[in-house]
Deep mutational scan, measured.
Amino acid sequence: KPRTPFTTAQLLALERKFRQKQYLSIAERAEFSSSLSLTETQVKIWFQNRRAKAKR
């Protein structure tokens, strides 16, 4: 499955949200993903990867 190329605007929004909160609830994820027109899975995986990156 090819990787999702996120737009610059989407990445900025994701990073901004991540700075506020490293873990999203299911409801927050649903709302946030639709506002960015991404799937919930894409947002979930992005947050997982971003948390892993923050640990390094």
Rank of each mutant, 00 (worst) to 15 (best):
T4Q: 07
F47C: 01
Q42C: 05
E40F: 07
S35D: 06
R16I: 07
L36C: 02
L14T: 02
A54L: 08
A52N: 05
N49M: 08
T4W: 05
R19W: 06
A52L: 07
Q10S: 03
Q20L: 06
T4F: 12
R19E: 15
I45Y: 13
R51C: 10
K44Q: 11
T7L: 03
A9H: 09
P5V: 12
A27W: 03
K17E: 05
L36H: 06
L38D: 05
A52T: 12
W46L: 00
K53G: 03
F32G: 01
A52W: 07
F6G: 02
T7M: 02
Q42R: 01
A52C: 13
L36Q: 06
R51I: 11
L14W: 01
F18P: 00
K21L: 04
I26M: 12
E31T: 04
R56L: 05
T4R: 10
T4V: 11
T41N: 10
K53E: 13
L14E: 04
T4C: 04
L38P: 03
I26A: 12
T41M: 10
R56I: 15
E31F: 06
K55M: 07
Y23T: 14
N49P: 00
A27P: 08
F32C: 14
I26Y: 06
R3K: 15
R56W: 11
V43T: 02
F18K: 06
K53S: 11
R19Q: 13
I45C: 07
K53N: 15
A13M: 13
Q10V: 09
W46G: 03
K44D: 15
W46S: 01
K53Y: 12
R51H: 12
F47L: 01
S33M: 07
Q48Y: 04
N49W: 14
F18D: 00
A52G: 09
R50K: 09
I26N: 06
F6A: 01
T39D: 13
F18A: 00
R3E: 15
L36P: 04
T41S: 14
K1W: 08
A27C: 10
R50H: 02
K44G: 10
R16N: 12
L36I: 08
W46A: 01
L12M: 15
Q20V: 08
K21N: 15
R3H: 15
F6V: 00
F32V: 13
F32W: 05
Q10A: 00
A54G: 09
L11S: 02
L12N: 14
L24P: 03
I45H: 08
Q22W: 03
Q10F: 00
E28N: 05
F47E: 03
L24S: 01
K53R: 11
I26P: 11
T41D: 15
R3V: 14
K17A: 14
A30M: 11
A13R: 08
L24H: 02
Y23F: 11
P2F: 10
S35P: 08
S33P: 03
I45S: 12
K17T: 06
F18N: 06
S25D: 12
K55P: 09
S34T: 05
R51E: 11
R29E: 14
E15R: 02
R29K: 02
K17I: 15
F32N: 00
A54F: 04
R29Y: 15
R50N: 03
A54P: 00
K55N: 10
Q48D: 09
F6C: 03
T8S: 13
Q42M: 10
F47W: 09
P2N: 15
T8C: 10
V43D: 13
K1R: 06
L12G: 14
L14R: 00
L12W: 10
Y23M: 10
R56V: 14
S34V: 10
V43H: 05
I26K: 04
R3W: 03
Q42N: 01
Q22I: 03
N49E: 15
Q20E: 10
L11G: 03
F47T: 04
R29S: 14
I45F: 06
V43S: 01
K53M: 15
L14H: 05
T39P: 08
K1T: 04
K44T: 11
F32I: 08
A13S: 09
Q20H: 11
P2Q: 10
A52P: 01
R19Y: 07
T7D: 07
A30T: 10
R50P: 02
S25V: 00
R29I: 12
T8Q: 13
L24Y: 09
S37Q: 10
L24I: 09
A9T: 12
K55Q: 13
W46K: 05
L36S: 04
A9K: 12
Q42S: 11
R3M: 13
L38Y: 03
L36F: 03
K53F: 07
R29P: 03
K55L: 09
A27F: 13
F47G: 01
S34W: 06
F47R: 02
K17Y: 09
Q42G: 02
L38C: 09
F6L: 10
E40T: 04
K53C: 12
R51G: 05
L38N: 03
F47H: 02
F18W: 05
A9W: 06
I26H: 12
V43Q: 01
F32D: 04
N49I: 10
A9S: 12
R3C: 10
E40N: 07
N49D: 08
A27R: 02
S35W: 06
T39L: 04
S34M: 04
S25T: 12
R51Q: 10
S34H: 08
A52D: 12
Q10G: 06
R56A: 12
E15C: 00
F47Y: 06
S37I: 03
S33I: 04
W46P: 03
L11Q: 09
Q20I: 04
K55E: 15
A30I: 11
S37H: 13
W46E: 04
E40I: 02
T4D: 12
E28D: 04
K44A: 12
R3Y: 08
K21G: 07
P2G: 12
T7N: 05
E28C: 03
A30F: 05
R16T: 14
A52R: 06
P5K: 03
T8R: 04
Q20T: 06
S25G: 05
Q48W: 02
T7K: 00
Q42H: 00
S35I: 08
N49F: 03
W46N: 01
L14S: 02
K55A: 13
K55S: 12
P5H: 09
T7E: 03
K55G: 09
A27T: 11
E40D: 10
E31Q: 06
K55W: 09
A30H: 11
T41P: 04
T41V: 10
S33G: 07
Q10M: 03
A13L: 07
L38W: 01
L14N: 00
S33N: 05
L38E: 08
Q20G: 07
L36E: 07
F18E: 00
P2L: 11
L24M: 08
K1M: 15
F6R: 01
S25Q: 03
R29V: 15
E31G: 07
E15S: 02
E15K: 06
R3D: 15
S35F: 06
A27Q: 15
L14A: 00
L11E: 14
N49S: 09
L11D: 07
K21W: 02
R16Q: 10
T7S: 11
Q48I: 05
L14D: 13
T8Y: 09
L36M: 07
A27D: 14
R56S: 08
W46Y: 00
L24E: 00
R29C: 14
L24W: 06
R56C: 09
P2Y: 11
R51V: 11
V43F: 02
R51D: 01
S37D: 10
A30W: 05
L14G: 02
P2E: 15
A13Q: 15
S34C: 10
L12P: 07
L24R: 01
F47K: 00
R50T: 06
A27E: 13
R16M: 14
L11F: 13
R3A: 10
